[in-house]
Write a protein that binds this DNA or RNA. Structure first.
Lengths: 251, 251
DNA sequence: AAGTGGTCTAGACCACGGT
DNA sequence: CCGTGGTCTAGACCACTTG
């Protein structure tokens, strides 16, 4: 048990700086947590207690607590209470952008070459990646993306024909496969694995690199509802591509 | 201007499924965007228009629109209006966790070896990474992290002594440097670069790998307010470590 | 001046969990 | 049963942008 409620004195932590009330409440609570006054798993005063202590309406308190919950500082359970979350193990984010957009954003020229675009039958591994049965038809495309005529990404993609039946009849010089898929199927979720690998001989040729040049490999499955739409293996020469990311706390 | 307002018929898109009203409003709006009925940069009906059309209170409409804005579907401008955001270039997230936590979570045993822990003077590059002047003192640590006695991370870290003066006097067999720094300085922001590299001879020895094994290198700077607290270079053998990530839309 | 989003309030009803 | 969070309402005032 020992589920101690923080005897708050939160009112003392409320800043005077002009700002919306719900913002000041949020900041005050973050300060309690940051300074170790409120510890992980400790109970936070209830909404009605905060209403009384701070003299603020419940909707305002609720907004502050709701936002802090979605930001990972608090955990709430209906009928039970609000608690300080476990130490936000610094899960930081890396963003993976659309390659064409990313190149355009740098003011460079994007182009691509289609090496392969065809239907085939799924072998065991491919079937597993798409969540279909082996022997079923699937579409496969293999493209090289260039930034100012220098190859930066080799995109090897499998597509579930049931979810994108017209996949083979698109012009991928105009629109990347991912952009097309995004348009025809509502992509609801995705999973990535990023790793460092050495390229094989064929990959070296396509990317115009030496066999000892390490590459980033991003493998991605993308879902539409509960079906896998596509499985992609994106290979980037380590010397020409890096993933950037950032995170912020206490916003 | 041709800033067309969506003639909405949003009411037709509201689902019947029992759910909170603000959720149903959100889903209905997402559907308009997803199906191309509302296009990027097009103006969305104002709050008061939606109140009239849907027969829902303004606070509820406001919550729906506010959440959609923070999720990146809409853009709002006070005094102007609410607009459909540019195509959410599928920025997906990869999480970078604390190595010790990650290993513990897999039910494995984490240990680490301290190769170096000392004060020195910053050379030009080091000074730049910490945002200090060259010649100033800095702390450096070099650790190998093991998962069940197999090396998985080589952590080479520079620390700003002004922000963590007791850095050298900690027991890093008990607590990782990052965990310690997180405790003594409020870490407010960070930046990462992930790339694929080949290890040098010394790194091979420390990680017990062959020189042709590609590695993931994560370089991270971490801020406390506007000061850089620490710069870390985390090197992972490609065969023993992968970064996982996921994203979800239309929550 | 009119319309927009941004915030805030004082009430209300509900579903849930623990007693 | 009571206290908790979850939602919703009908009003209100404000700051901002535009004509």
């Amino acid at each position: 048990m020992a589920e101690q409620t923080a005897i708050s004195q939160l009112s003392a932590a409320i800043s005077e700086r002009p700002a919306p009330i719900y913002q000041r409440v949020k900041q005050a609570i973050i300060r309690q947590i940051r300074e170790g006054i409120w510890l992980a798993n400790q109970r936070v005063p209830s909404e009605s207690e905060l209403v009384k202590e701070l003299g603020v309406s419940r909707m305002t308190i609720n907004r502050a607590l709701r936002e802090l919950t979605s930001e990972g500082f608090l955990v709430r359970m209906q009928g039970v209470g609000t608690f300080v979350a476990e130490v936000k193990g610094y899960t930081a984010m890396l963003e993976v952008h659309n390659i064409a957009d990313e190149i355009a954003q740098r003011g460079h020229h994007h182009s691509c070459k289609i090496l392969l675009l065809k239907e085939s039958r799924a072998d065991l591994e491919q079937a597993a990646m798409l969540g279909i049965s082996s022997g079923q038809p699937l579409y496969r495309s293999l493209l090289v993306h260039y930034e100012n005529d220098l190859p930066v990404q080799l995109e090897d993609r499998l597509v579930n024909p049931q979810l994108a039946p017209d996949y083979l009849n698109q012009d991928y010089l105009q629109q990347t496969p991912y952009t097309y898929l995004m348009r025809v199927a509502p992509l609801t979720a995705g999973e990535h694995i990023v790793e460092a690998v050495l390229p094989d001989a064929q990959q070296c040729r396509h990317l115009a690199i030496y066999p000892e040049e390490p590459c980033l490999l991003i493998r991605r499955q993308t879902w539409s509802d509960s079906n896998i739409v596509t499985y992609a293996r994106l290979l980037y020469p380590g010397s020409r591509y890096k993933l950037l990311g950032h995170f912020k706390n206490y916003g």
